[in-house]
Simulated scan of single mutants.
Amino acid sequence: MLLQLLDYLGVAVFAVTGGIMASRKQLDIIAFLFFATLTGIGGGTLRDLLLGVPVFWVVNETYLVVCLIVSVLVWFFANKIEKLSKPLRWADAVGISAYSVMGAAKAISVGDAVLVAVLMGVATATFGGVLRDTIAGEPSSIVKSEIYVSAAFAGAGSYVLLTVVGVVPWAAAVLAGGIAFVLRGGAIHFGWTLPGYGQSKAQ
C-alpha cells in the first residue's frame, strides 16, 4: 500500500514540476497537460520498457487522471505556487525521493538483480525531469554539478540494500526516500555538490 502511494506521489509531484515549467513559459492549457504528463510518467515509462513489463499507466489509467488533475490545478494556482521558495526544485526533490524507491522496488518485484534495481530507480527518478528540461530548452540539473542523480542513486541503493538485509519494504521505503530527500534538499538549500572532474587538480 505504501509503495503504491509513493508511486502516485511521484507521478503527481513530477507532474507539478511539468506544470510549473509550462507556466514559466506562459504556455496554454494543452501544453500544461503535455508537460505535466510527460514529466509525471516519463521515468516510469522508461523503467517499464527496459524491464519488459506492461507500462504502468497503460494498465492503470489513474496515473493519467492524476496528471490531468495536477495540470488543471497548476494552471489555476501557478502564481501562488511560484511564491513559494524554489517550488520546482523542491517538488523535484520529493519526486526523486519517491520515484527512486519505486523504480528499485518494481525491478526487485519482477526478479531483477540488485544492480539492475538500483539503475531502474535512478532512471525512474530522473528521466522525466530530463525530458521536461530538454523539451523546454532549459539546462538540466544533471549538468549543473549539483546533487541530483546522486540523490536518486542514494535512494535506490539504500532501498535495495535495506531489503537485501531483511528490512521490511515499507520501512526500507521510508528510510531510503528520506535519504534521497535529505541529499537533494541539501543541494537546494545549502548548495551541496560533489567534486567535479579536474577541480582538485586546479586547486
Score class of each variant (00 low, 15 high):
Ala187Ser: 15
Glu61Trp: 13
Val114Thr: 13
Thr17Lys: 05
Lys86Trp: 12
Val182Asn: 08
Arg132Tyr: 11
Thr193Trp: 02
Gly128Trp: 01
Val160Ile: 10
Phe190Ala: 12
Val74Phe: 00
Val116Cys: 10
Pro169Asp: 08
Ser158Trp: 03
Ser109His: 07
Ser109Gly: 05
Leu38Gln: 05
Val16Asp: 01
Pro169His: 08
Phe32His: 13
Ala12Cys: 06
Gly137Ser: 11
Glu146Asp: 12
Met120Asn: 04
Leu161Ala: 15
Gly40Ala: 05
Thr134Ile: 13
Gly103Val: 08
Ala152Asn: 05
Tyr197Gln: 09
Ile29Val: 14
Asp7Lys: 03
Gly157Leu: 03
Gly42Arg: 01
Leu161Val: 10
Ile147Glu: 06
Ile20Ser: 03
Ile41Met: 00
Arg47Cys: 04
Glu146Leu: 08
Ala91Gly: 15
Thr45His: 02
Leu115Cys: 09
Met120His: 05
Gly157Met: 02
Val58Lys: 03
Gly42Ile: 01
Gly177Asp: 10
Leu175Asn: 07
Gly196Ser: 14
Gly42Thr: 03
Ala107Glu: 02
Ala22Arg: 00
Gly128Cys: 04
Ala107Val: 07
Ile179Asn: 03
Leu183Asp: 00
Glu61Lys: 12
Ala171Lys: 10
Ala31Asp: 13
Asp133Thr: 08
Ser158Glu: 04
Ala117Gln: 01
